[in-house]
Structure formats: structure tokens, C-alpha cells
Design a protein around this nucleic acid. Structure first.
Lengths: 192, 192
DNA sequence: AATACCTGCAACATCGATGTTGCAAGTATC
DNA sequence: GATACTTGCAACATCGATGTTGCAGGTATT
């Protein structure tokens, strides 16, 4: 999965990581932040950022690619195609929340330029769709459910939960995920 | 409610409207669009935009203020403090959706600078909270409902519905609102 | 220890977006 | 129809962000 021409030296690798993490932090609070600010947050000189990422766009793309990688792994790790729908739903939610809380900005990018990133997103979409279909077969979702709408609601709930989980403790993710799944299936109203 | 020093001439008034509408259109598809692009979309010269709005920030603020005005009116018009909770919920949703479909960008601005705008948002928040409390009293929401979470979910659902309603016909708003309310209360799962 | 790589710093070049001004021609208002 | 407002156009000024280069000092790797 090496996209660069040659392996980086250990310290350079760390620098790249530091820049990506700083970019996430800074850009999530201000999407129009300058390279200068990102460099400062990463604890490196601005020129060093340009050395690693030719343009601003390249940096943002790399950021998106990195986060998408994590995102994809998070979904895969939940084995959404094989484990029981309800279990898979919960596990996927937990895993994705964990990634999204830390890489919210990078994952909010729409219309990725990198085809690799686009493929990953499409694959995740596919797995989500597949999972929902299985949930429908099991009676978890009604036969006439609008799968498109269900997916949108699911994504939106995860987004909100991630937002809320931003300043929360580490262990709260499970509770957040439980609430997301519960709300997705039954809403916030009184159960009949 | 006049914030300007003097009334504008009729044609100038129209120009301002055209600029605001163009800004909404252009900025919603690309938040970093230039004044040039906005001017072009409005069918005026760039200098004219600067004549009406001193800086870019002033334009965006004015846009937010305009949309917030509409938003506030939309909520008020539904009489959420007096009509029955379920009715109010539906009516508020319809009204807000109508505004949000047309002024999505302007309403997505966070942390408004104008105190007037901040007050309007706070007031809407208050009305939403009040409505949810009444809904709880009526048994529509469970006694132990997390009102904060419920509100977040409600906002998110409206956001999604507005997104979907962007390219839809005029009359579909009622159906969208019905789905939002239903999803908010019962989720997308099979009702027990 | 020799080598190749990495970084900070300073200086420079470029570029696009923003904002201003003056004026001539057009248009609303009375 | 006189007046005051509005607009487009062209020209100019400014500014911050981006991207580049050279070099000297430091660090990983062998």
C-alpha cells in the first residue's frame, strides 16, 4: 500500500504523522487555516510541510486518504457481512465512532479526488447497504424500509455522536454507539 | 427592524436581494467561492457587491442575518408554544424545511458574530426545548428522555431531509416533514 | 566514521483575492 | 424634467498565502 516512491527515514515518518495530526486538529476547528498555523501546531517549520506535501491540496488529500484508510479498516474489522446484523451494527458503530472522533475533519471531505479514496468510500457504502438488507431480512427493519433514508439517518446519527464524543472520556464510546443504534431503530419517542 | 441608516432605492433593493440569493447559491456549492463568482452569479459587477457589502465578511454576515430572520419567522409561525405538541412538531418541521432548502448555506454558519442573530438562534433553541418538554409531559417522549440528544437528532434529521429536498418538487415538503417526525419518534426499525 | 537524509531559517518570487477610486451613462423618484 | 441615486468599467493599491531555493547544522543508517 506504498504510494510514495521510496521509504522515508524514521524521523521523517514521524514528522509526516505529526503534520497530519496537527492538520486534523487545526483544520477541524478552522477549515481555512493556513499552512503556517498547521506547521506551528505540528511543531515544524512551514517549509518542512511543503517539503512533505507539495501543495495545500496535496496535504488535504493525504489527510483524507489517511483517515479513509482508518475508516475502511474500522468497518472491515466489524465483519459486517458475516456477524448477526444487530451485533454488526453495534460493532461497526463503535469502530467508526472511534475513528471519526479523532479524524472528523478529514472524513467530512466530500467528493474525494483520489480514486483510491473513492473506492474505499464506495466499498463502505456497499457494506452498509448489505448490512441493512440483512437486517431487513431478519425483521429488524420493516420490509418497506427506505434503505437510502435509513443510511442517511445512520450516518447523521454517527456524526452527531462523534461530535458529542469529541470532549468525552475514552470509555464512553460504547454508550454512544448503543444510543446511536437504539435511536436509529426506535427513535427518541416513547416505545409503543 | 431597519439596521441600515437610510432606505435604499427600489432598484438597489433588488440588487441586494439578487446578491444575497446568488451568494447562497454559489457558496452552498463552494464555500470558498470568490466575490467575483458571486457577483457573476448575481449578474452584477464585482464593485457593486463591494458597494453594498463592505467586506466579504459583511456579506456572509448579512446572508446569515437574512436567513436567520426567515428561520425565526418559520418557527414562530408554527406557534410551537401553544398548539398540540405533535401538531406543532410537524408544522415546525414543514416551515423550517421550506426555509432550509433554500438557505442551507446561510443557516449552516456556526457562531454568529451578530448578537441579533445569536438571540434569534437562542430563542429558537428555547422554543424547541419548550416544545420537547411539552411532548414529554404528554407522553410523546419518555420521562427519562435526553432532551439534548433529542434536539440534536431532530436538527440532524431536518438537515438530511433538507439535503434530500434540494432537488425535489415543491409539494414534497409535507412528506419529508412527516418522515422526519416519524423517524425522530420511532426510528427506521420495525415497530414492536 | 562515512554517507545520505532531514530540518530550520532566511530570502525571494508569485499569485489571486480583496478593497478603493473616479467617471460616464443609465434609472428611479419627486 | 430636474435631481439624486445606482451601476459598470477600468485602473490601481494592498495583502496574505503559497510555493521555491540555498545552505548550514543535525540525525538516522550502514
Amino acid at each position: 500500500m506504498e504510494t510514495k516512491g521510496r521509504a522515508l527515514r524514521a524521523d521523517a515518518e514521524r514528522t509526516v504523522r505529526a503534520i497530519l495530526e496537527a492538520a486534523e486538529r487545526v483544520l477541524s476547528s478552522d477549515p481555512t487555516a493556513t499552512m503556517e498555523q498547521i506547521a506551528a501546531a505540528a511543531g515544524v517549520a512551514r517549509t518542512t510541510v511543503h517539503r512533505r506535501f507539495v501543495t495545500r491540496e496535496a496535504l488535504v488529500d493525504a489527510l483524507a486518504a489517511w483517515a479513509t484508510q482508518r475508516f475502511h479498516e474500522a468497518v472491515e474489522a466489524a465483519r459486517p457481512r458475516t456477524s448477526p446484523p444487530l451485533v454488526a451494527l453495534h460493532q461497526v458503530t463503535v469502530n467508526v465512532l472511534q475513528v471519526k472522533i479523532g479524524w472528523g475533519f478529514a472524513m467530512s471531505r466530500t467528493a474525494p479526488t483520489d480514486p483510491e479514496v473513492a473506492r474505499a468510500h464506495a466499498d463502505v457504502l456497499d457494506q452498509c447497504d448489505h448490512l441493512f438488507r440483512r437486517a431487513r431480512e431478519e425483521g429488524l427493519l420493516p420490509p418497506d424500509v427506505d434503505l437510502e433514508w435509513a443510511r442517511r439517518v445512520y450516518y447523521a446519527l454517527i456524526h452527531e455522536a462523534a461530535e458529542e464524543g469529541r470532549g468525552a472520556e475514552e470509555g464512553a464510546v460504547d454508550a454512544l454507539a448503543a444510543r446511536v443504534v437504539d435511536t436509529l431503530l426506535h427513535g427518541v419517542g416513547t416505545s409503543k
